[in-house]
Computed example of a mutant assay.
Amino acid sequence: MSGSHATAKWYNESVPVEFTRALLAQAQAHGKDVDAMLRAARFPFDPLRQRAQTTCVSPEQYSRLCVELVRTLNDESAGVMPDVQTPVGTTRLILLTMLNSSNLAAAMRRSIEFNAACRVRQGVEISNQLEIDASGKLATLSYLCSDDLPEVQHSVLCNLAMWMRFAGWLIGQHIDISEARCAGPEPAFTAGIRHFFPCPVKYGQAVNSVTFSARLLEAELVRDEAELSEFLKLAPYHVIIEPKASTLSVTQRIRNILGSDFRTEMPSFEELTGLLNMSARTLRRRLEKEGTSYQRIKDNARRDAAISLLSRDGLTVSEVAERVGFSDPSAFHRSFKKWTGLSPGSYR
């Protein structure tokens, strides 16, 4: 196995400046003083005026600006959820309510109960449910605000993705969303949806929903109140930009082993057991408990690398295919469409 597999990171620790511009544009749309926000957040420059100064900002800078936008609007959904206002502090209270639950299923149901009882509505009916399919293998979390606002449903769906990142942090595991459904039409600008959902997304559905392995609902919560206070300092970064990597998850350990260079052969399952110092039986049981498999982890690693490479200029689709380990471009096309619901060319 190449040494690069053992050391490469598959996540970033900086924020493209375009994300900060989006925050400021949201503030402008609500008539807020952007200069005052930047000063309060101790932001070193104005991303709207000084476009050439930098391409990235730090997680701390981005998180401070998010917090300031929330404080200015007094809305933790930053004005993108039209059905309810989410006053500052609501997310912390919901997570505190969830902390002592017996498992993730109980925690999610507590959050749904909190949402039904405590959030400030604007005269619309809300549907918020957690359901398990007949096979017992798939769980679906759904949310629908007023269905006469089709143009905002993709934003509501993205908020569901953020909530799943909170849930993943609570159990110390990444929650892999296998399919998403949007109650509105496909938006003209799909970068936000693609950022949160590297999986098939269906539009024009009855509700907004995310589907994931039901096995994860059995997972115990591994966080306490002190960890929550620490997490919330960078929560905007971890729920919007990059989920917090977990040292508790065997999936994460495998992703770290695989790295991001797939031009060399990935370790076999037998080699992997040696690298993790586990028996094959133990590893299979741990992966099943985390609602995944070694093949799915490998597929997701190659998918994420392909998405990153497709966003760069100067690489052809064939070159991207080769870099993620496909000698046959047509096989890459088939696999990428299975992973994301789109062909590589359409995704780009």
Rank of each mutant, 00 (worst) to 15 (best):
R110S: 11
L138P: 00
A105C: 14
V124S: 10
A106Y: 05
S142R: 10
V156I: 14
C145A: 15
R109D: 08
W163T: 12
A161Q: 05
I126M: 15
L149E: 01
R110C: 07
M162C: 15
G123T: 08
R109M: 09
Y143M: 12
V120A: 14
L141M: 14
Q153F: 03
I112H: 03
S127L: 14
F114W: 14
Y143H: 12
M164H: 07
E131L: 08
S146Q: 12
A134Y: 04
F114S: 05
P150C: 05
S146G: 11
V124D: 06
Q129C: 10
I126G: 03
R121V: 04
I132C: 01
Q122G: 02
Q153N: 09
R110E: 13
V124Q: 10
A139M: 03
K137P: 01
C145P: 02
V120S: 10
L138R: 13
S111I: 03
A116P: 06
W163V: 09
A106R: 09
R165E: 08
A161E: 02
L157C: 02
D148F: 13
A105S: 13
E125K: 15
L160I: 08
Q122L: 04
A139I: 02
D133R: 00
A117G: 05
G136H: 01
R110Y: 11
P150K: 05
E131Y: 05
A134G: 12
E125M: 15
L160E: 03
I132E: 00
L144T: 06
R109A: 08
I112F: 09
F114V: 10
N159V: 13
S155Q: 15
C118N: 12
M108Y: 03
M108Q: 06
W163H: 15
D133M: 00
C145E: 07
D147N: 15
H154K: 08
S111R: 07
S155K: 15
D147F: 12
R165Q: 14
V124F: 08
K137H: 09
N159Y: 13
G123H: 03
A161N: 07
R110W: 05
S146A: 15
A105Y: 03
A107N: 04
I112Y: 04
V156Q: 01
S135N: 05
I126S: 07
I132Y: 00
I126P: 00
S146R: 06
A117K: 12
C145K: 08
S142L: 13
R121K: 07
S111T: 07
S146T: 08
K137W: 01
A105G: 09
L104K: 02
M162F: 12
